[in-house]
Design a protein around this nucleic acid. Structure first.
Length: 188
DNA sequence: CAGTGGATGCTCT
DNA sequence: GAGCATCCACTGT
């Protein structure tokens, strides 16, 4: 029984289309991960987006083709993982904010230093620590190891809300999540 | 529970 | 030199 892996053209659409479609998709990094339960969309006309002020060395991957990882350091401490979307140059991306820990639980617990399952991947920084995603993954294609993205088999109930932690464009309802999931970074 | 503040490093002005 | 797409520990109800 072959598993359905996401093709690169899955991401060659607006981040606003891709974001809700990612809820329920299983993300694995070296076999560790689980179904995505929370994401946020960003685009170039978005004052909160890293791409808003044009291309720089940090955000260069966002301006490239869809289907690649954009990883940046947050608050000097954490890493955050994005999937680049849309046509090259549009600089759209989806931030992966939370997933349900399913594969490699013990590895995640060791990396995170906590035991509670709901604390392992319930936030973008936590998720990258649990999956060992770092700046070394910036610019890597999502359809090749160490990444593995498995298509969902059912259409989940999607909740929407405003994005988290922003000081600009905070009112845009571009946060998507699995309704009722206990593994969200915050309730909707 | 809610709210506050510190850690920490890199990017951009 | 300011400002973060965060997390955790700590305070006070």
């Amino acid at each position: 029984m072959p598993v359905n892996r996401l093709q690169r053209d899955f991401f060659a659409r607006s981040s606003h289309e891709v974001a809700p479609d990612l809820i329920g998709v299983t993300l694995l990094v070296d076999g560790v991960g689980g179904p995505i339960v929370e994401v946020e969309a960003y685009d170039q006309d978005d004052p909160a987006s890293h791409s808003f002020n044009g291309r720089t060395s940090r955000n260069a991957v966002m301006f490239g083709p869809a289907g690649y990882a954009y990883v940046y350091r947050s608050y000097g401490i954490h890493w955050c993982l994005n999937f680049v979307c849309a046509e090259p140059g549009r600089a759209e991306a989806v931030l992966i904010r939370a997933l349900q820990p399913a594969n490699g639980l013990d590895t995640m617990r060791q990396r995170r230093g906590v035991d509670a399952e709901r604390a392992l991947c319930s936030g973008p920084g936590k998720l990258c620590q649990a999956l060992a995603v770092t700046g070394a993954h910036d610019g890597l294609p999502l359809d090749e190891p160490p990444f593995e993205l498995l298509a969902r088999t059912q259409t989940p109930a999607i909740a929407t809300g405003t994005r988290i932690g922003l000081t600009k464009a905070a009112e845009r309802p571009w946060r998507y999540g699995l309704a009722g999931s206990p593994y969200l970074s915050r309730r909707f």
